Amino acid sequence: GSLMYASIFGNVSAIIQRLYSGTARYHTQMLRVREFIRFHQIPNPLRQRLEEYFQHAWSYTNGIDMNAVLKGFPECLQADICLHLNRSLLQHCKPFRGATKGCLRALAMKFKTTHAPPGDTLVHAGDLLTALYFISRGSIEILRGDVVVAILGKNDIFGEPLNLYARPGKSNGDVRALTYCDLHKIHRDDLLEVLDMYPEFSDHFWSSLEITFNLRDTNMIPGSPGSTELEGGFSRQRKRKLSFRRRTDKDTEQPGEVSALGPGRAGAGPSSRGRPGGPWGESPSSGPSSPESSEDEGPGRSSSPLRLVPFSSPRPPGEPPGGEPLMEDCEKSSDTCNPLSGAFSGVSNIFSFWGDSRGRQYQELPRCPAPTPSLLNIPLSSPGRRPRGDVESRLDALQRQLNRLETRLSADMATVLQLLQRQMTLVPPAYSAVTTPGPGPTSTSPLLPVSPLPTLTLDSLSQVSQFMACEELPPGAPELPQEGPTRRLSLPGQLGALTSQPLHRHGSDPGS
């Protein structure tokens, strides 16, 4: 009898404990919600809404976190579960008819179910419309201010047509639940991603989709105040780019002037030289400038040598048109050559190039014969006009050509200096018209024969001689050997007369 009593008592207590286990969990969670309300000092109306929603959600799901349970299964099984949970929507909604099984599984994985109690606001006026909503159960109302403009029910759709707008718009009203509602919502990016994977279904979906109420604000059109608020930074940046392009296009129409201050000032006329910023005076940081632009901040801005204009002085008759350009485009679109090309026009420029290279940067340069637009006047290309890779490749080509020119210049200078040193070592320090008596009659020769300089066969020296023939050397430049009979510069000019005159010897006659 005691054994029977113990078994009955144990079973009854276990049954009672299981009955009250759900209630215990409910009270535990309710205590957490109330502690949250007390800690954050939530006001009474919002506090009442929180408690009511918790009670309804507990009775609806029995305190089970559906998302946590669903995430515990593998992905393939999750797709089947989501397809079952959203079967009513996918079967009865017209846009989803005719979709393949794979497309429906992908869509079912992207849908999220939302449960809303009465009085809950789903979308506020001015919120971004980031999702498309399908009503599965219940009814909602749409308000503009305090005026109800629409009441939607089961199988209705609200949001915005995503295929017509590249960016999400703003809501033009509040969406509030009238009863307990079940909503299926899919985010904008998720829907577009699935439709991109199934393009054959995309056309059918957009053609058959009928949005019951379009929440997009109709005033959000390009150029409206609301649109400016939504895309303020983007609009200002776009206007700045367009104004920069218009100014650079105007600059290219004036090829007669070359400016070292950047493309923003290349198009300024002579009357605007004294102004601080020219056409860019209202925004000094709008356009890029070269490193020399920092010198323009000092006094005497109108007389600054940074602004270059072609000189009108005539060229000498024998002067060549100019050196070879550094870039391939210089032959086609440049009416002034790079300062480095002028360094190779003569030997005198070679000796004085490194010492006063900055001073020569603004000297007169030889002109190319074609009066085409200036290379320095070409505006900086924006990322939309020329690819970045093209600019980098041009810079690399320019750097390689500069290296080759520097190597060639160093070799030419070394060769010229070597020839000058050899000339100085071969010439005796001094010569006299009267020579010392020699031991015999073989001493009648006034000077030792001097062998002429070897013929220069280097390509670089031939180019130097060509430049010497075309360029007029300055007075202080050293002379180079030329073709024809060679003669030492330090010898007297009348050596031929010395050989014809008898030598005057000093000596005593033994017979006297």
Rank of each mutant, 00 (worst) to 15 (best):
P270Y: 07
G256F: 05
Q401C: 15
P222R: 12
M468H: 12
R404K: 10
G507C: 09
T212V: 04
N338P: 06
P371L: 09
I157F: 04
V450C: 06
P373H: 09
Y362N: 08
G126E: 03
F213S: 02
V175E: 02
N219G: 06
R216W: 01
L365C: 09
D156I: 01
L242A: 11
M220P: 10
L164F: 06
I211P: 03
L162D: 03
D356R: 06
D509E: 08
S303I: 14
P339Q: 11
P255W: 09
L473D: 13
E319V: 13
P429C: 12
T212G: 04
Q237D: 10
L461N: 05
N403V: 14
R394M: 13
F234L: 11
G438Y: 06
L143H: 08
R367G: 09
T499D: 14
Q423W: 05
S432R: 08
S451A: 14
R358Y: 04
R167G: 13
P314S: 08
S304D: 15
Q254S: 13
L164K: 14
A150Q: 03
R404P: 03
N155F: 12
S227H: 13
P446R: 09
R505P: 09
E210Q: 11
C368I: 09
R386V: 06
H187R: 08
L128S: 11
S345L: 06
T336M: 06
A260D: 13
A433D: 09
K250G: 09
H504F: 09
H504P: 09
V427H: 11
L419R: 07
P373F: 09
F467Q: 14
N172V: 11
L480P: 09
P449H: 13
S357E: 14
T336E: 11
F234H: 13
S208D: 14
R265E: 13
S374K: 07
G262K: 14
I151M: 07
S382F: 08
A414N: 09
S304I: 03
P317S: 11
G511I: 14
S345Y: 03
D509P: 12
D249P: 13
P291L: 10
P492R: 10
N155C: 06
F158V: 05
T228Q: 08
L395H: 04
E324M: 12
E257N: 12
S202M: 11
T218S: 10
V434M: 11
R188W: 09
A397R: 09
G169D: 01
S290T: 15
S302V: 11
G223Q: 09
A150N: 01
S304Y: 15
P225I: 10
P373T: 08
P222N: 09
D203Q: 05
V175C: 11
P369E: 08
D396Q: 10
S374E: 06
L209Q: 03
P492Q: 13
A131Q: 10
G322T: 14
P474S: 12
V464F: 15
M413S: 07
T435M: 10
L230N: 11
Q494S: 10
Y198P: 01
E331I: 09
R404C: 12
L495C: 12
G223H: 10
N214P: 01
Q466P: 12
S334V: 12
S171F: 01
R307G: 11
I350R: 10
R367M: 10
R240C: 08
E229F: 08
P255R: 12
S302C: 07
F467L: 09
Q482M: 04
P255E: 12
S272R: 08
N349P: 11
T336Q: 08
F353Y: 07
D127N: 03
V427Y: 09
L230A: 11
R404E: 03
I211T: 02
A430Y: 12
D335E: 07
T212Q: 03
R301V: 08
L456S: 09
P383R: 10
V148T: 09
T442N: 13
E328H: 15
P452E: 08
L164M: 10
M220F: 08
R408N: 14
E229R: 12
R315C: 15
A268E: 11
L409A: 03
P263V: 11
Q494V: 10
S304P: 08
K170T: 10
S139K: 13
S208H: 13
R144C: 03
T425K: 03
M327L: 10
P439H: 09
M220W: 04
F311Q: 09
C470N: 07
S139D: 04
P441I: 05
P316Y: 05
R247S: 09
L192G: 04
L162S: 10
L178K: 09
R238H: 11
P317A: 15
S432E: 06
P317M: 06
G153T: 09
K154W: 01
L261R: 09
P475D: 15
L448K: 10
L448W: 15
E141L: 05
L308M: 15
H184C: 09
L395D: 04
Q423N: 11
P299K: 15
G496P: 13
D412I: 15
R188H: 08
L152G: 02
N214I: 05
S381I: 13
L405A: 08
T425Y: 13
L152V: 02
S272Q: 07
S227F: 12
G159T: 02
R188Y: 11
M413D: 05
A131H: 13
W206D: 01
F205D: 01
S259Q: 11
S286M: 15
D156P: 01
R245G: 12
F213I: 07
P299G: 15
E479F: 02
Y362T: 09
L495S: 07
L402H: 04
Y198W: 09
I151C: 03
E231W: 06
L426K: 11
S272L: 12
T436W: 08
L409F: 15
P439T: 09
P441H: 13
L376R: 09
T336G: 10
D196A: 10
A166L: 09
R246D: 10
P387Y: 14
P225D: 10
R404D: 03
R247F: 10
L498S: 11
T436F: 10
S357H: 03
K332F: 11
T407N: 03
A370S: 07
A177Y: 01
P379Y: 01
S224C: 08
R246S: 11
E257V: 09
T457M: 12
M468Y: 13
F213P: 01
E406C: 04
S465P: 09
H506K: 14
C368S: 07
L498N: 15
L215F: 02
V434W: 09
Y431V: 12
Q418C: 06
I151T: 11
F205G: 03
E324K: 15
P270I: 12
A430D: 07
I378N: 14
S289V: 06
Q482E: 15
P305S: 10
P439N: 05
S293V: 05
L230R: 11
D174I: 06
G281M: 12
F213D: 01
N338L: 10
E229H: 11
L143Q: 04
P446I: 06
L402N: 06
R240V: 11
L395A: 08
P510V: 09
P299A: 08
F467A: 07
D146P: 13
S207H: 10
S259A: 10
T499V: 13
C337I: 11
Q361C: 08
S285C: 07
T252E: 11
E160L: 02
N172H: 12
T436M: 11
G223C: 08
G476D: 08
G359D: 07
G269M: 11
T499F: 09
Y198T: 01
T248A: 10
E210A: 09
S382Y: 04
P284E: 13
K185R: 11
N377V: 03
L128Q: 12
T435S: 11
G281S: 05
H187D: 11
Q399M: 04
L503I: 07
S465Y: 05
A433P: 13
Q401E: 04
N219C: 13
E479Y: 15
P320I: 06
G440M: 07
I378T: 13
S235L: 10
H504R: 08
R144A: 08
A260I: 13
G159Y: 02
Q423A: 05
L420W: 01
P222H: 09
A477I: 12
F201S: 10
K170A: 04
N338G: 12
W206L: 12
L132T: 04
I151G: 01
R176K: 06
N377Q: 01
R404G: 08
L405C: 05
V347Q: 13
P502D: 08
D396M: 09
G493T: 09
E297S: 11
R301H: 13
R367F: 12
V148F: 01
L209Y: 03
P325S: 13
R245S: 10
I211M: 07
D182Q: 10
L405S: 04
G159E: 01
G159M: 01
H204F: 07
L128Y: 10
R360S: 07
L209D: 01
L405F: 05
L152A: 03
D190T: 03
R188F: 05
I151W: 13
G159F: 01
F205S: 01
T435L: 09
D249F: 04
V434G: 11
P222E: 09
